[in-house]
Design a protein around this nucleic acid. Sequence first.
DNA 1: TCCATTTGACCCGC
DNA 2: GCGGGTCAAATGGA
Length: 291
Amino acid sequence: MDNSSTDLNRAIEGLIRGREFTRRLKEIIKKPLVGGGEVANIMAEELVAKIMESFSETLSVINNSDVIITTPVEVKSPEDYSSGSCKSSDRRGCYKRRKTSESNIKESSDLVDDGHAWRKYGQKQILNSTYPRHYFRCTHKYDQKCQASKQVQKIQDNPQRFRTTYYGHHTCKAFPRVSQIILDSPMDGNSNYISFDQNHTFPSIKQETKEEVVFGFYPKIEDQIQSSSSDYFLPNDHDHLTPATFEASGSRMTSPDVMSSGVYSSCTTTSNDNLEIDIDFEEGLWNFDQV
DNA sequence: TCCATTTGACCCGC
DNA sequence: GCGGGTCAAATGGA
């Protein structure tokens, strides 16, 4: 079996896992809440994490042999790493640093869109590390109290790869964005297609607009790095390492409310082998058509 | 003018 | 005390 076939199988397995987790989540949601629904909430959160993990892994496979390392650590409540009390009016540094929290570490040769809107809030040179570390928080940290954050850093031994460490779960309602899911277009009723096309690059949307809430794209770290620090540069063969790219046909995708309704998504990958994946969450239909 | 990014300052865990 | 994580003023682009 050649590599592309292996990757294809891995991608399919990942999606099937995601489907199974989604099915379980659906069951939990359907069940009447017992005990205030806390148990169900916890289970749902775990399932969401697993779903995200499966999709991330699948995306990584699609984007060529990326590695995902999941490090389950004690899950803390958001209060455990929320801002602490402040004494002065200058709130700089006024926060409570998290001790431990759930983290997912991902290494990739490119920066895959993880489906969420991030805002960079810091950059720091790390001791004994050539490359600075970049800090991102969820765009909805304040408007929806989403505690998700991540750190991105070039891998010392392999500067062409990036290590992304995710902390916390997304509690925001912003739906995972295009790389994962595209909705029915309210305009024409046709499904929108995501194309993982090596010939395109990520659009870089840098505003926390309402549009971005729904389909803001993952900002290219390269762009940010280039604009911020001379320490960062793109590898010479960057064209070869083009980030996972996609394009969505169907233009306007604006209303978050659409997300809550029936979801149909369809994505297309184009690599050596074309993998077309149609996902209908509402009907539970997943079609894998090798083109 | 608005908003994202940059960057230095500050705080906390180890 | 050091180093890492976060904050917010300053800055620059749209």
